[in-house]
């Protein structure tokens, strides 16, 4: 890819990540949430891949780790519900007491992130998982495209 594309992609990369993170973190307050935000963040990975920025190759292992981390975190918060007194799997153990205990106000709200109990945390877990998962798929697709013998078109600088 040309220098222009590479430069713009490198500039947009952090912006994509920040916007995706915003959607993930406000998942319990605004439309969107873990999946949508994670998908936005994964477009950042897609940008690097398509533009063929060398940095992209170094990230692959991290996405595998993020995928496992996200899944683990999600299941951890589901299991936390079992630990609460008379709780159940997926029970919102952080709700109605402590720092995360506030419920989200209906209608326009002040945007406090520390509300909704485990839901905010589970959004975060899903966001991490989706970022990892979609990026892993994108890298697998790149490998498949390479396998077809057209490695030059990729131009990923490896």
């Amino acid at each position: 890819m040309s220098k222009i594309v590479k430069t713009i992609a490198a500039l947009l990369f952090p912006a994509c990540l920040v916007f995706g993170a915003y959607v993930v973190l406000h998942g319990h307050l605004t439309p969107g949430g873990g999946f949508q935000g994670g998908a936005v963040m994964a477009t950042a990975a897609a940008l690097l891949l398509v533009a063929g920025i060398p940095l992209a190759s170094k990230h692959e292992g991290r996405y595998h780790a993020l995928e496992a981390l996200g899944l683990g975190l999600f299941l951890f918060f589901a299991f936390v519900g079992l630990g609460a007194a008379s709780g159940s799997f997926f029970f919102n153990a952080l709700a109605s007491h402590g720092f995360f205990g506030q419920a989200v106000a209906p209608g326009p709200n002040p945007g406090n992130l520390h509300t909704s109990g485990t839901i905010a945390w589970m959004n975060l877990a899903v966001g991490i998982e989706v970022l990892g998962g979609i990026s892993v798929i994108l890298y697998a697709l790149r490998e498949a495209a390479r396998g077809e013998g057209d490695g030059k078109a990729e131009g990923d600088g490896k």
């Binding site: 496992a68 981390l69 683990g72 299941l75 589901a78 299991f79 079992l82 159940s88 799997f89």
Partner: peptide, 19 residues
């Protein structure tokens, strides 16, 4: 909690193995 654990524990093991 057996009905939930029957699904959750294999899932947890799968995630650990993935890691």
């Amino acid at each position: 909690h057996a009905p939930a654990l029957a699904v959750a524990l294999p899932l947890a093991a799968a995630i650990l193995l993935l890691a």
